[in-house]
Simulated scan of single mutants.
Amino acid sequence: MKLSALTRTRRGRAVLAAVPTVAVLGILMGGVAQGAVPVSMAISGQQFKIAADSLEGTGFSQYAGEAKDVNGKEHPVAIANIKDATLHNLCQSVKVPGLPLGLLISAGTDPKNPVKATDLQIAMSDLRGTATFGDIRIGVDASTVNTKAHGDEGDFAMDSDSIDIQGLKQVSSSTSAAVFQLTDLHLQISDGTECF
């Protein structure tokens, strides 16, 4: 998977990538319920919120970069990749700027049927939760991380064999996945209510 949509630059990379908690990941949902999603896309520039009771994943990497909108404006983001992810009780919310209106999505509310995704790539600006990393490596070269997607040679990065986040709360600019399976999907127009 190539990162044509998320243009990496060296500005501020060490600052974004140095904190493992920010490094962690965000989670899914770019408005696509299931199927292949192209990585090369211009972001809207509007952020959305994602929350989940828990996220478990294998094959994780993170580095800092920038995502471009349709006008070519660059937005600094932390780029996270997860090979395989499972999320429980997922919520995504998007507000319409200037109006008491929004979109509210939930999925994976049944503990026996969580949300699943493969080859996730998330561009985010904020992440909160309690994170546990298995076999973590901090300070590796971004071109050598253990995921298909990777950063540029000489850039700071981190990766781990596994990741577990409890009480996930994330602010994201974009998410893409090779396969994104949302069980018990519920999408509704809201009064601007957000996940957190």
Rank of each mutant, 00 (worst) to 15 (best):
K169F: 14
A142Q: 01
T132G: 06
A23K: 00
Q34W: 11
A117D: 08
A51M: 11
L28Q: 05
T183P: 11
H150R: 04
Q34I: 09
E194I: 08
I165H: 00
I136Q: 08
L90V: 08
N89R: 06
I82R: 01
D53R: 07
S172D: 12
L103D: 12
V22Y: 07
A80K: 03
D159Q: 00
I136E: 10
T86H: 02
P114C: 04
L168I: 01
T86E: 10
A178E: 14
D161N: 06
F180I: 03
A178W: 04
I43D: 13
K169M: 15
S106I: 13
T183K: 15
V15K: 06
N146R: 04
L99N: 09
D126T: 01
L103C: 09
L90A: 12
T118W: 01
S125Q: 07
D119F: 04
T132F: 06
M158S: 15
L101E: 13
L104Q: 06
C91Q: 08
L103R: 06
S160H: 04
D159P: 07
Q170M: 10
E56I: 07
K68T: 12
C195K: 02
I82H: 00
G108H: 09
R11S: 12
A23V: 04
R128V: 11
G167L: 05
V39H: 06
S162C: 07
G59S: 11
T132V: 09
K83R: 13
P20W: 10
A123D: 13
V94Q: 04
G192P: 10
R13A: 14
S4D: 10
T21E: 14
D155T: 01
S173Q: 10
I165P: 04
E66F: 14
P38I: 02
S176V: 11
Q47W: 12
Q170K: 01
D191I: 03
K73T: 14
G151Q: 00
R128Y: 11
V15W: 11
K112E: 15
I50F: 12
E56M: 12
Q47N: 08
M41D: 13
V96L: 13
H75W: 15
L55V: 15
Y63Q: 04
Q62G: 13
T193R: 06
T9K: 11
A5W: 12
G65V: 00
A178T: 11
A85Y: 01
S190L: 11
M1R: 08
G57D: 05
A80V: 03
D84W: 05
M124W: 01
E153K: 06
V96H: 01
I79G: 01
F133N: 05
A51E: 13
D126M: 08
G30E: 14
K49E: 15
M1S: 13
H186A: 13
T7M: 09
R13S: 15
V37A: 09
S93G: 13
V32S: 09
D184S: 09
G102N: 07
V39R: 07
I138T: 03
S176T: 15
L99D: 11
H150P: 07
L185T: 00
V22P: 02
D159W: 02
I43P: 02
I189E: 08
